[in-house]
Each structure stands twice: as C-alpha cells, then as structure tokens.
Design a protein around this nucleic acid. Structure first.
Lengths: 330, 330
DNA sequence: CCGATTAAGTTGCTTATGTCAAATAAAATG
DNA sequence: CATTTTATTTGACATAAGCAACTTAATCGG
C-alpha cells in the first residue's frame, strides 16, 4: 500500500524526545499483542477470502458498503491503497457485477460507487461466514469472558481511533437502575480518581463508602436516584440525588473519569439530575465539596449553584476548606 | 499462506449450532475491531519494513529470534507459510548474513536456525524503531488511558490465545498493599459474582460493604491483612484475615473471578493467608459462609476447616443455612 | 473566456509476494 | 533392503501491489 500521506517516521524524530521512556512495559504489551493479533487476523482472513476476491478487494467492498456514495478517492484515502491498483480492483469488481458506478453530474471525472444486489448478497454471505468463524473462536469462552473480549476491543478502538483517544457520547450509556457491583464501582472510581488527582488516600475511599451506606439506609426508590455512565462495561461517570428533610435534596458523587471529560457527559448527567429535582419538586438542592475541586466548582456555578459556606477543616488528612453550594429550585 | 492444517470452516458446520445466536452484539464488536485493527497494523507495519525485508521475512526473523534452535519446519508450523516460499526466504536471509544454518548431526535434512550478530542487530534496530512508532501512537493518550490500552490488549491475548481462555498464574500478581480503589473493587467483585452465580441482589453488596467498614474500623496494620490478585489492572481474586479477640482470626471475602478458577489461584491465596495466620500465632481461624457456596466449602475443608454450626437464616432475601467453619492452628 | 495548474482516474510496466507441483535426499518403517 | 515418510529445495506460475506516465475534467488567476 502506498504510504505518502501518513509518514509517521518523520514525526518520530521530533516527537519522541518528549515522551517518557518509562513506559516500556506498555510498549512491550502492545508489541506482543500486535504479533499475536497479526497471526489471529491471518487465520480468520484466510477463510473468508477463499472466494475469488482478495483481502484488499473485500476491504474495498466493505468500504463501499459502509460509506454509501463514496468515490474512488474516498476509498483511496480510507484504505491507503495505490490509485492505479484501486482502479483495477474497481474494474474487476464492476466486471464481476458486484458494484455499480454512477457518474457524478457535477464532476465528470468521478463516479459514486455502490454495491449491486449481487454485491450486497456476497457481503452478507461473507459476513455470516465470518460471524460463524468468530462464534467458533468464542465458543469455548464463558459469557463473562466474551463480554471482556468485546469490552476490551471497544476500549482499544475508542482509544486508538480518535486522535486524542477521546470518547464520544454515543459510546456511553447512562442508566439509573442500581445493579450489583455498582455501589462498589462508585466507591472504587472515587478512590482511584481522587488519589490520582488530589493524592487522597484510602481514608477518602472509606468516607465515600460511608456516604454510600447512608444513602442506601435512607434509600427511597422514588425520591433518590443514581445516574451511572457506563462505557464498554466500565463505570466512567456518576451523579446522584439524595432526598433530605424539608423538601431539600443533596447532590452527591458527581464524578467523571478523566478520559471522558470535555465531551458533554458532565452536562448530560447534571441535566438529568436537575430534571429529576424539578420533577420531584425539591425546593432546594445542596452539595458539599472542598476548595480543592475547583473545576467541579466552576461547573456547579454554571448550573446555578451558589457557594453558601466555606469552613476550614481537616479531612482525610488534608487541610482544606469544606464548602457548601446551594441552588434554589424556582 | 497455506492453510491445510487448520481449517476452521470444516468445524463450523458441526459446532455452530450449539452456540447461542444471541451474542450478535459481541460478534459485531469483534468484527468492527478486526476491521479497525487491520488498518492499524497496516499503518504500523509499513514503516517498520521499508527496509529491504518484507513483513513475512521479518516475521520469520522474529520467529528464529524467539525460538532459539528451531528448524524450517518449526517456523513453517508457527507462521503457517508455504514450505517452498520459506525455503527461499531462508536462503535470502542467509545470503544477507542475517541468519546462520547449523546442520543437525542427527538429521541430515534439517538445520537449526539462529540469528547472526548482524541479524540480532537488525532485530533490535527494528524493535526500537517500532517502539518509537508505538510511542508516537500513544503520545496523546493520558497515562491512565495507556494503562487501559495495555490492559485491554493483555486481556485479549490471554482470552484468545489459550484454547479455553484460561489465565495462568504468571499473569497474575498478588499484593497486600491496600490502594485507593481496592475497597470498592472488593465490594464490586462480590456484588457482581454473587449476582451471577447465586442471584443475590444489591442487598448482598451492601452487606459486604458493611463488613468492609467493620474491617477498616478495627484495622490493625500488623494483625489484619488483605491479599489482592490482580490481572492486567483488574481485581480477580481476594482473601483477607481479620484479627479477632482471644487470639482468633476471621477469614473473609475469599473469592475468585470465574475465569481465573482452576489455575491454583485459590490455593495461592489461601496459602498466603494461612502462612500469615501461623506467623501471627492465631489460635483459631474461622469463617462464615452459607450452604449455597458448596464449591468454596469443599475448598475450606481441604484446608482443614471444619463445619462447626449451621443455622437457618434469611439473608439478603434468600432462605439458607448460615454456616461457620473453624480451623485450629496447631 | 483562456491558458496554466490541479485533481481524479486509467494504463503500461515492473517487482514483490505467494502458491503448487515435482524433485531430491535423508530418515524411518517393516 | 525396498518402501514409505519427512524435510527441504527447485521450477513454473499466479496474484498482489507499486510507480510513473498519461488522459480527461475541473479550477484558478488573470
């Protein structure tokens, strides 16, 4: 495949010096994975493509099927193959009656490409064939292990595809049903993140555990609610509303995993929480935080929360200001 | 590549009917991952191999480097390439001074293959080259995200390489230091597994949380201990010893993730726990369980625990027998 | 509008990659 | 010792892929 457009090797010289060399372990893991998965893909592909079409030809077919209304250039960019080679592949596929060319009215040089009925049939046939192979491959794994496989693959695709490894909202589901494991995951997420970001130790995690206890003891299915943001089986964001005496409510455990920030997840969670508070006709919503969580504070303010108090305290081994924010619900 | 030895397609007919068709989601995830990773590997490989040696030639070199003292047949089996093609590759590599052939004294047809100094140098050069590429690839990811990538890859390799997806002990590390996130993970693991295996609901998870609270309240660094079995960043097994009045101790949270059972992990954990109890000179160790955890019970018995009581109770919404096992420490 | 330039796709030519079948030669078998 | 099997090699061939020159259509700058 031609390779003019994306020459990493030129960037290496300038980039690599900025990178930590300490991560050799990660690099080794990736290398052995790549070697392993090269073989794995080889095994799979042999069987799909004992048809009269080659791997590359099938990849072209996939591309045409996937992107409706693409041109030769689109495919060339997507699959990074030589234009001349592609031209011949397209001619072969057209001769074989798998694809159709629709000349562009606005550009006499290009044609839209689409699958013919026959092409579509071939794709589905190959699809089911390869699905069957994958089923054989997965047959000896427990359902839980299969979930792990799918989750790991989704993680990799997400992290390696976006240039900055950012997730998008459509990879995340938000649910309110509290399933076994969720309580522990909320505690764990807090423990890990606050350690990463504020150097809090296990004492903080214990504190979170106590608040969860408290929440569950007073739990009222209608008046309390937790929103859990989950991406490929992992908890990546939380928020909860806990009812309090006198038509008040407390917002708790608002937290988003760093790799999922800046994509509107915080907004989505907060939106649902606030909507819930309105529905429940809480008069006032409050939350407790510290002066160290400044980015969170900014977000609270944006959502109409106002700092009502700020008292010095020693919490979890840190000297800080314990702050209380409130918001009146019209 | 030739493909006579491993023809999955023949197995498909007989196997596939036994498999659940419901897992189409998993299959789809795998398919899109494969498409994605094919491209990814393509990108990487282009750059490594703009040397005068092809992908396959380099794979052969890897194989020779990796398996010291292999023959042509060994490589042929490992990489599944045509014998004739391989013969030519080997000749080219030998001419290029990268490999050496050492005729076998006991078999005049074959030779052991090994890398020459020059070959070794090339391998390390390509190794560092490809490492640099991987560094560039990972540069824009946060360290946490990089960990996720490595973890996901290790999971995949482990699950897809062993025929039954079984882990081996060397992929697991057991530690006793209690880090932030661990408490939550222990709770979560219990919640998820007991739901999967005994249909316990969140009430059980809350109970576990309370026991963890209790443990932490009375925590004594010398006399209490937790063993955490971790595989690619995920908690897969636990056991703990909690000191009790009168030189007694309680064994708690003994649990192993299903995919990690039957590989000696339970034994390893129990061994460490019992060694600890002996060191601490506890007179008696006890544990509480129910009649439903029968496989665990068998293991307890094997480790010298004896059932001392069995009383009917309603716990976490289930009618069961609450059982107490004890073991005298000589 | 026109010549120059750029972009999309095609074609001829070449090399690299891989396969198949037959040949060779050493080892194992009976 | 004849026969079969195994490991490797060789020859002939086919496919896959890349490069460069070319055609045709669009665009751009005056």
């Amino acid at each position: 495949m031609s390779n003019k457009m994306f020459d990493l090797s030129k960037e290496i010289g300038s980039f690599v010096k900025m990178l930590p060399m300490s991560d050799q372990r990660v690099i080794n893991d990736i290398r052995s994975f790549n070697r392993f998965y090269t073989a794995q893909l080889g095994l799979l592909q042999q069987h799909i493509f004992d048809s009269e079409y080659s791997l590359t030809e099938v990849r072209v077919l996939y591309e045409i099927n996937f992107n409706r209304q693409t041109t030769a250039t689109g495919i060339r960019d997507a699959l990074q193959i030589d234009a001349g080679y592609l031209s011949r592949i397209l001619r072969k596929l057209e001769k074989g009656g798998l694809i159709l060319k629709h000349p562009l009215p606005e550009d006499g040089r290009s044609s839209y490409l689409s699958l013919s009925d026959r092409g579509r049939r071939l794709m589905t046939k190959m699809g089911t064939l390869s699905d069957d192979q994958l089923r054989v491959m997965m047959a000896h794994l427990t359902p839980a292990a299969q979930e792990t496989v799918a989750g790991a693959m989704n993680d990799l695709r997400r992290l390696l595809s976006a240039p900055d490894g950012a997730a998008t909202m459509d990879q995340i589901t938000i649910r309110t049903e509290l399933l076994p494991g969720d309580l522990g995951d909320i505690i764990s997420l807090h423990g890990k993140l606050y350690m990463q970001e504020y150097r809090y130790d296990t004492r903080f995690e214990r504190y979170v555990m106590e608040t969860i206890q408290d929440f569950m003891v007073h739990y009222h299915p209608a008046r309390d609610r937790v929103w859990l943001a989950v991406c490929s089986g992992r908890l990546v964001g939380v928020v909860a509303i806990q009812h309090r005496p006198a038509k008040q409510a407390q917002l708790r455990w608002f937290l988003i995993s760093p790799d999922f920030r800046g994509i509107g997840l915080g907004k989505a969670l907060m939106q649902q929480a606030m909507d819930f508070c309105r529905e429940q006709k809480f008069k006032k919503v409050y939350l407790l935080t510290t002066d160290q969580q400044d980015t969170a504070a900014a977000l609270y303010k944006r959502w109409g929360f106002i700092k009502k108090s700020s008292v010095p305290a020693t919490l979890w081994g840190h000297e800080l200001l314990e702050e209380r924010y409130e918001r009146e619900m019209q």
